[in-house]
Design a protein around this nucleic acid. Structure first.
Length: 596
RNA sequence: GGUCUCGUAGUUCAACGGAUAGAAUAGGCGUUUCCUAAACGCUAGAUCCGGGUUCGAUUCCCGGCGAGACCA
């Protein structure tokens, strides 16, 4: 049973009976009661003052009286100014608890028949992943899980940028300085191996520029004329012509990189249903340009270049094809967007991409609308802000980029140290493997939670020390609650107690009501997280759950409770809570331990 | 030059237009013969500035200031 919906209906009826007919009050006027007041739901009466022409408190009183007299689940009400605070009976709370306990699908919303594609990660193959990619990967992975729990069929995709001048730079450096070494021979992970040559290229290239500038050339000219750059561009042309040796080298280097990426993805628990490669898609989009020209959505300038006028949308004129007939970035995206919809017939498509591309996506979506694509309304750019370090921005030129593999490893190591310290002997019975597993769960949990609890839109600060903290508003704090409950359940089982069946009629403590209330909010919170593509909602919610449990645990005893009905109810409530925490954390891609 | 995003305790984050702006952390004070103290409680501390709309503005609108990004 849904208390909230019933309450709104009852309030509507109260208004009709007490004041005559009226429009329904929206959901929005019903909110959780603030801690310092008695009650659990609060109905805000201010918006009704205009139509009812009565003072807010009077309206509240009248509705409250009606509810107390006619709505059995309402136990008490009180009015403070324009706020009607409503308390619910223990009986009603217990039936809410029972409804959740007996709902096998609690936490999974019904299939909605819609499918959504989530594209994320999208790395370049010339260097390893860094901290910014982690925010991207965690966001994309979590949003995919949240949408699946909302009843969507989800297709996780990754578009790999596997071609272009940057790859050719790595390839060229390998030809020149590689001496046929391999990741195996050097002991380097494939992506780091390729990244090493990208750095080598850059170093040699800069030296060449410096030499040319010394001869009196301008810096700008030197950048173009430097032999290494010329050679890299020649390599790109050979690649485009399909030169066998070049392709072979390209495939070899990419294979190394993919092996490295695969390892990283496995460690961080991220996977894809479909991987697209730009080498297969970079020529797409020209037919879309033709189409747009034919139906007048695009126009051609005298120099032959093709444009679209988006000033009506508050954007600019945008180039979609160069005068020499070559593509620009957006040309490709026009083609790949069509291709993705043709491949999967999905209803929506989400791109998890940094906010430096806000304009690009605004343009892409506007063009798709102009072209009359039926799916245009379902396109969404999940934009996220940069991750800053305490020392400032990450800059590859200054070597301040935080490598993803290093960071994950260091986080797990730091979690191990911190956990060993905090455990105070609890881990003595753990085997080495069990310890390693736990530290991995805690380290990754801390990292993921740290990056996901923040609104994606905002730039965020990454403080390495805070990111592995086990205390406070962190992943491990929530994981601890799960382990705590599981520990109580093991003890309960030893005592011959089981947490099965349904709740028994008893009185409830305030904190128990609060827990049931919070749990009952789960489907709604999940739905909101789905609508707004917001893992941070789930993060905030599951923290509230964990925090409230700790208060419950501190205030009331579970196993020492002498009233059998209360004991049963607390076991059931705790079990449901552990399951719900586990489900919500899963939505964030975070595991929860049985013991810690 | 134009467009977009952001600005909240010392710090890192919350707050469908609703009550006395919530947490965490750092600081101060407490809590364990009892289910995991990796916890709990108390205390102190903030909306960049100026207008406007509203019964009510951190939130919406306008103008500044500051940080960042993008487009030529």
């Amino acid at each position: 049973m849904n208390i909230q919906a019933q309450l709104i209906a009852a309030i509507q009826q109260a208004i009709t009976v007490q004041f005559g007919e009226l429009n329904a009050p929206g959901d929005s006027t019903l909110q959780p009661t603030k801690k310092e007041f008695e009650g659990i739901y609060t109905f805000v009466t201010f918006p009704l003052t205009k139509t009812l022409r009565r003072p807010p408190a009077e309206i509240g009183k009248a509705i409250g009286q009606y509810l107390e007299a006619n709505c059995p689940m309402v136990s008490r009400t009180n009015v403070v100014q324009g706020f009607l605070n409503i308390s619910i009976t223990d009986e009603a709370w217990l039936s809410v608890l029972n409804a959740m306990l007996t709902d096998a699908d609690f936490g999974q919303l019904p299939a909605n028949g819609q499918s959504v594609m989530v594209e994320f990660s999208s790395p370049n193959t010339n260097k390893p992943l860094h901290l910014g990619h982690l925010r991207n990967n965690f966001l994309g992975d979590s949003v995919s899980r949240i949408l699946a729990a909302n009843g969507y069929r989800v297709i996780k995709t990754c578009l790999v940028n596997d071609r272009g001048i940057h790859i050719c730079k790595s390839m060229l450096a390998y030809q020149r300085f590689g001496h046929a070494e391999t990741p195996e021979s050097t002991g380097l992970k494939g992506d780091h191996f390729a990244g090493k040559y990208y750095v080598l290229f850059d170093r040699a290239y800069k030296a060449e520029i410096a030499e040319l500038v010394a001869t009196g050339m301008t810096a700008e000219e030197a950048e173009k004329k430097a032999p290494l750059m010329q050679q890299a561009q020649a390599l790109l042309r050979k690649w485009e012509q399909g030169d066998a040796d070049t392709i072979a080298l390209w495939e070899q280097m990419n294979a190394w990189v993919y092996a490295g990426f695969a390892q990283t993805y496995q460690t961080i628990g991220v996977s894809f249903d479909k991987t697209y490669y730009e080498s297969n898609t970079y020529l797409l989009g020209k037919d879309v340009v033709d189409e747009g020209l034919a139906n007048g959505v695009f126009y051609r300038k005298d120099d032959g270049s093709v444009w679209i006028d988006l000033t009506a949308e508050g954007l600019d004129h945008k180039l979609v094809l160069r005068a020499d007939g070559t593509s620009v970035y957006i040309t490709q995206d026009l083609g790949t967007t069509d291709m993705k919809f043709a491949d999967y017939h999905n209803d929506r498509s989400i791109w998890v991409v940094g906010n430096e591309q806000d304009y690009h996506f605004a343009v892409l979506f506007a063009i798709m609308r102009r072209l009359g694509r039926p799916y245009a309304a379902g396109l969404h750019h999940l934009s996220y802000g940069m991750v800053d370090l305490p020392s400032g921005k990450m800059k590859s030129r200054e070597g301040t980029v935080v490598d993803a593999d290093d960071l994950v490893r260091e986080t797990i190591e730091a979690a191990a140290t911190a956990a060993d310290d905090a455990a105070k002997g609890k881990l003595e019975e753990f085997s080495e493997t069990e310890k390693e597993d736990l530290f991995q769960i805690l380290g990754l949990g801390a990292l993921k939670y740290y990056l996901l609890k923040v609104d994606p839109q905002k730039r965020m600060l990454f403080n390495p020390a805070e990111s592995v903290d086990l205390h406070g508003h962190t992943g491990p704090y929530i994981q601890y609650v799960h382990a705590r409950i599981r520990s109580v359940m093991r003890k309960a089982a030893d005592m011959g107690l089981t947490a099965t069946g349904i709740a028994q009629p008893t009185e409830l403590d305030e904190v128990e009501q609060q827990l049931i209330f919070l749990l009952s909010q789960y489907p709604q919170r999940l739905a909101e997280a789905g609508t707004d593509y917001a893992p941070s909602y789930v993060g905030q919610y599951v923290y509230e759950l964990a925090k409230t449990f700790n208060q419950f645990y501190d205030k009331l005893s579970i196993l020492k409770e002498t009233n059998p009905a209360k004991l049963t109810n607390r076991l059931l409530l705790s079990t449901l809570l552990a399951e719900t925490i586990s489900k919500a954390m899963w939505l964030l891609g975070i595991d929860v331990p049985e013991k810690m």
